[in-house]
């Protein structure tokens, strides 16, 4: 990634942790967790400690956004055949990212001992019949997802869960931006991405 070439984030983390680690005996697992550079999976050594913090209420919140991720996957799957050109390429790419979000949420829920909500057999997506209507459907879907994540985020108690949700929320906001541009709208209309974005 071009921007990553400009950064030395992992190196700076390692350097800092080497310095800080001297006074942190007993916290090595946590230090490793904070060392999540690009070459290692995040928080490899303290997963069980993190999972232990997840409450039933958190799982319920995550299942709420997972339901909407399933809806988005259905909307993209149904709408892509009606799109052409750049919009079709973008929607196909976004579908792949929605699938990754759903997989991440499912893994998080089951990893915490919960049961992930399955996708429904069918979804009422209306009857879009052309590209403009599909873009409007996808815009509505992404707006609903944004709203759901913004509502869910502050209700998640473990900080790491909020971070996971924030990373997905930010990606959904990027989808929305691209869709808005494809519709001839301002791709970044406000300084704060709200539920009414």
């Amino acid at each position: 990634m071009a921007s990553d070439d400009l950064l030395s984030d992992s190196a700076s983390r390692r350097a800092f942790l080497r310095t800080a680690g001297a006074g942190l005996a007993g916290g090595s697992g946590v230090l490793l967790a904070a060392c999540g550079g690009s070459s290692k999976p995040a928080r490899p050594t303290v997963a069980s400690a993190y999972q232990a913090q997840v409450r039933d209420a958190d799982i319920s919140v995550l299942n709420g956004v997972l339901d909407l991720e399933h809806t988005a996957i259905a909307a993209y799957t149904a709408g892509i055949p009606l799109l052409t050109g750049h919009a079709r390429v973008a929607a196909t790419w976004f579908l792949g990212q929605e699938l990754q979000h759903a997989a991440k949420l499912e893994a998080t829920i089951t990893g915490a001992g919960g049961k992930a909500n399955p996708a429904q057999a069918s979804y009422d997506l209306g009857n879009p019949s052309n590209a403009d209507q599909v873009l409007e459907l996808l815009h509505r879907t992404e707006t609903s997802l944004l709203s759901a994540y913004l509502d869910a985020l502050p209700r998640l108690i473990p900080g790491w869960l909020r971070a996971v949700a924030a990373g997905i929320l930010a990606n959904e906001s990027q989808h929305l931006s691209v869709l808005q541009a494809a519709q001839g709208r301002n791709p970044v209309p406000g300084a704060f991405v709200t539920a009414h974005a």
């Binding site: 913004l150 930010a170 929305l176 791709p187």
Partner: peptide, 20 residues
């Protein structure tokens, strides 16, 4: 709760900047 919400709204905006 409020500050988490505000930070999320701003992070989402920064992500849109990055995309554009």
């Amino acid at each position: 709760v409020e500050r988490v919400g505000t930070a999320a709204e701003i992070m989402a905006n920064e992500a849109q900047h990055e995309t554009v």
